Simulated assay, not measured.
Amino acid sequence: MAKTNYQTIDEYHSTFTGDVLKRMQRIRELVHKVAPEAKEVISYQIPAFKIDDKYYLIYYCAFKNHLTLSSPWSEAILKKFEADLKGMKVSKSAIQFPHNMELPLDLIERILRFRKTEI
């Protein structure tokens, strides 16, 4: 049974292997590139990043068939990136990236930059 009381992102990542782990690590690296001041935390037992210890920039987590990127973002993000998100499973606060598709790092970086301006 997987550990369910993670204290760090490294602990969360340690329960994954292969491409899923690499994909999560790429998101982590992008966050540090875009927001080097962001602090790594675990929130709701998944990786998250906070700015100024009070604003959540982004969360991510892995599932069997996809990665989910989520945040308390505004509808402005969904409208701004509507064309880029076509064909993806999207909700008010989450975007799913299936494991069988290339991770759209450019899009994720643009979302992170936009989210940072919202904060």
Rank of each mutant, 00 (worst) to 15 (best):
K22T: 14
G18W: 03
V90L: 01
L21I: 06
M88K: 14
M101R: 15
R115S: 09
D84S: 13
K50E: 14
A76D: 10
E40W: 07
I51Y: 01
N100C: 08
L78Q: 11
S70F: 06
P98H: 05
Q96C: 07
E37K: 14
I119S: 01
P98Q: 03
K64D: 10
F97A: 07
L21A: 09
G18T: 07
T15K: 13
A48K: 05
N100V: 09
R110Y: 00
V41S: 11
I51N: 02
E118K: 05
I9H: 07
P36F: 10
A76T: 10
I42S: 08
R115Q: 13
D52K: 15
H13T: 02
Q25Y: 03
I58W: 05
W73G: 00
I51P: 05
H66Y: 13
P104H: 10
Y56F: 14
E40L: 08
H13P: 00
E82Q: 14
V34Y: 04
R26C: 10
F81I: 04
A35I: 08
S91R: 00
Q7W: 03
F63R: 10
K116A: 08
K50V: 13
K86C: 01
L21M: 06
L21R: 15
E75I: 11
K22E: 15
S93M: 10
I111P: 01
E109K: 12
K89G: 10
H13A: 11
L107Q: 01
M1Q: 11
N5K: 15
S91Y: 02
F16I: 00
K86R: 14
V34W: 01
M88P: 00
L21P: 12
S43F: 01
A94N: 11
L57I: 04
S93K: 14
R110C: 02
K22M: 07
I108H: 05
S74Y: 00
E75W: 02
I51D: 02
V34N: 00
I46T: 13
R110V: 03
M88H: 12
I46H: 00
F63C: 03
E29R: 14
L67E: 07
F81Y: 11
T4Y: 09
D19K: 15
S43P: 08
H13V: 10
H66G: 08
E75N: 12
E75H: 11
S43G: 13
V31W: 09
K89M: 07
K64S: 11
A76I: 01
N65H: 12
P72L: 11
A2R: 15
Q7G: 12
D19E: 15
I108S: 06
K116E: 08
L107F: 01
L69V: 13
T68S: 15
R115M: 06
V31P: 02
H66S: 07
I51S: 03
M88D: 08
L30I: 05
L85G: 04
L21V: 04
A62Q: 03
